[in-house]
């Protein structure tokens, strides 16, 4: 068992996310996180999928993703040098007495405080999943009021680029309805 990070380029068509998430359920893939967003190409979105599994299972997911017509390309980022980042917003309890301590922790982790209220701070932190894990453990004693994470996004280093297979949007297709959701 290991952590596998897959990156998939998908066409911005309605229902693509449903197709991918349905695949996870249908074939019993256990997914840690899934993040979706736009790319530099107007008609393509990019998904980053993190799963804890053995290599055969990850391979099976890659092949099944390729079976989806809207999936243009899939890369197994573990097979190449890559960078991965996760982001979290953490609302930490912070009164006037301990606010300094929290701010110090944020400095050490290069986290940014983006909202200050009388009883709490909202901290924005970016990094690898591990770093976010350590940070939340350290602020937990102060009290985490709420927290949200984006899930991992990842990219190959240097020349390792997710190929769009010479993608051209289909002629005659309007782009008005382009949304991966």
């Amino acid at each position: 068992m290991a952590k596998h990070i897959l990156a998939a380029l998908v066409e911005n068509r309605p229902g693509v996310l449903a197709r991918v998430s349905n695949l996870f359920r249908r074939r019993s893939f256990n997914i840690d996180s899934l993040s979706v967003g736009r790319t530099q190409r107007e008609n393509l979105s990019r998904m980053t999928i993190v799963m804890e599994s053995d290599a055969a299972e990850a391979d099976r997911l890659v092949k099944n993703l390729y079976k989806l017509v809207d999936v243009v390309h899939v890369d197994h980022l573990h097979n190449q040098p890559s960078v991965a980042r996760d982001m979290a917003l953490v609302k930490v309890k912070a009164s006037s007495e301990n606010r300094r301590e929290v701010i110090q922790l944020c400095d050490i982790f290069r986290a940014r405080i983006i909202d200050v209220a009388a009883e709490s701070l909202v901290v924005e932190i970016t990094g690898e999943e591990e770093k976010l894990g350590h940070f939340t453990e350290l602020v937990r004693p102060f009290g985490i009021v709420e927290m949200v994470r984006t899930g991992v996004i990842a990219m190959g280093r240097g020349s390792h680029t997710l190929k769009d297979q010479g993608y051209k949007p289909n002629r005659g297709r309007s782009s008005s309805r382009r949304s991966v959701l």
Binding site: P14, G15, A18, R19, N22, R26, V69, N170, G172, R173, S174, S176, R177
Partner: peptide, 23 residues
């Protein structure tokens, strides 16, 4: 029906514009 048949079709379409129907 596109939702219902998602796992039992190779692919499916909900046509959203007459300009895309033929394609």
């Amino acid at each position: 029906v596109t939702g219902i048949t998602l796992p039992i079709t190779k692919h499916n379409y909900l046509v959203t514009s007459i300009d895309e129907l033929a394609e």
